[in-house]
């Protein structure tokens, strides 16, 4: 039986109040699991750590770099974050040795890298990010489904919603809000966030041309905080008091979930992703000592705490163990 979207919408919004009330209890205080080992200093580590890549991860990378330098004062650390797409070319050209990316490398990026370096890079998971759909803090919208998010942001609406959503009334808001136009904010196309959102929220469709592309997630959040009728998306780490993250459901028939640690880990929150770093992994030799230690630091208790401090979510111990194993192969 097919029901039309509007029906589901009202049903969803009706039931949402209760759901959100329940979910609101799961507090956002995230702790790094105590079984993740503290970082142990190794002798003889020197050299350069050049980090080029994701903008989403730039704050976190800077913090990691600073702490790492405190442990190894001889190591030079530089961090640059213009977008995930800048990571593979920098790694391939040798101008960087750490490539943070908020999405996995695309096959053609891997091709170019592999043809230059002769071997595939090593992909390490560093932390978990939930991509939040944010609205102004005074916006009464309770929740959304990915179909609706798609209909708001996409001109191709591949997730299947029929109507093009341009006003808040179409999302069930009433009163003053009913006729207010929706103002769209998004990331620039160099960012992994842009690509991730396009693939997972827009079902690989296209953004509307009216999405205002901002050069950083902070600018998106700033734009929405200034624009009462704005909506945008970005990493959960950038949320400020001026905006509110909307709980999401995959489809109209699913439950809505807030972007919390539990929901991201369990995969219930539909827009959660791993934040990655790529490093050189020459066959036979393995990663450089300094790079290896830097990655070990990221995967240590201290490194994971930095991720939490920057608003992201730490890896569970099982994944940390798996990632460390990759380094020792």
């Amino acid at each position: 039986m097919k029901l039309n979207g509007r029906f589901w919408l009202s049903a969803l919004l009706g039931s949402s109040v209760a759901t959100v009330a329940v979910l609101a209890d799961s507090t956002d205080a995230v702790k790094v699991d105590d079984s993740i080992a503290k970082y142990a200093k190794v002798d003889g580590v020197r050299g350069n750590v050049n980090v080029v890549g994701s903008d989403t991860m730039v704050n976190m990378s800077t913090l990691w770099g600073e702490e790492f330098k405190k442990i190894y004062p001889e190591v030079n650390v530089s961090v640059e974050g213009k977008g995930s797409a800048t990571a593979p070319p920098a790694l391939a050209a040798g101008t960087s040795n750490i490539g943070p990316m908020s999405r996995p490398m695309k096959p053609e990026e891997l091709d170019t890298y592999t043809s230059k370096k002769g071997a595939k890079p090593l992909e390490i998971k560093t932390s978990i990010d939930a991509l939040a759909v944010v609205v102004h803090k005074d916006n009464p919208l309770a929740n959304l489904t990915l179909e609706l998010v798609d209909a708001i942001f996409s001109k191709t609406r591949k997730a299947g919603y029929t109507e093009d959503i341009t006003t808040w009334g179409q999302l069930g808001l009433t009163g003053d809000w009913a006729n207010k136009p929706i103002s769209l904010y998004g990331r620039n196309s160099a960012s992994g966030t842009y690509g991730y959102f396009k693939e997972h929220a827009l079902a690989k469709g296209d953004f509307k041309s009216s999405v205002k592309e901002q050069p950083g997630t902070a600018a998106v959040v700033q734009g929405v905080a200034e624009d009462l009728y704005g909506i945008g998306y970005g990493g959960i780490g950038y949320i400020t008091p001026g905006v509110r993250a909307i709980p999401l459901a995959k489809t109209f028939s699913d439950k809505v979930f807030k972007p919390t640690y539990e929901n991201a880990l369990s995969g219930k929150y539909p827009l959660a992703r791993y934040l990655l770093v790529y490093i050189d992994n020459p066959p036979g030799k393995g990663p450089d000592a300094v790079v290896r230690e830097y990655v070990k630091f990221i995967l240590s208790h201290e490194g994971q705490e930095i991720a939490v401090k920057d608003g992201y979510m730490p890896l569970p111990p099982a994944i940390v163990a798996k990632e460390l194993e990759k380094l020792n192969k």
């Binding site: 797409a85 695309k106 160099a190 992994g192 690509g195 693939e199 690989k204």
Partner: peptide, 9 residues
Amino acid sequence: QSSSGTQES
């Protein structure tokens, strides 16, 4: 719309 996360677009 020059880029996307996947090569399928």
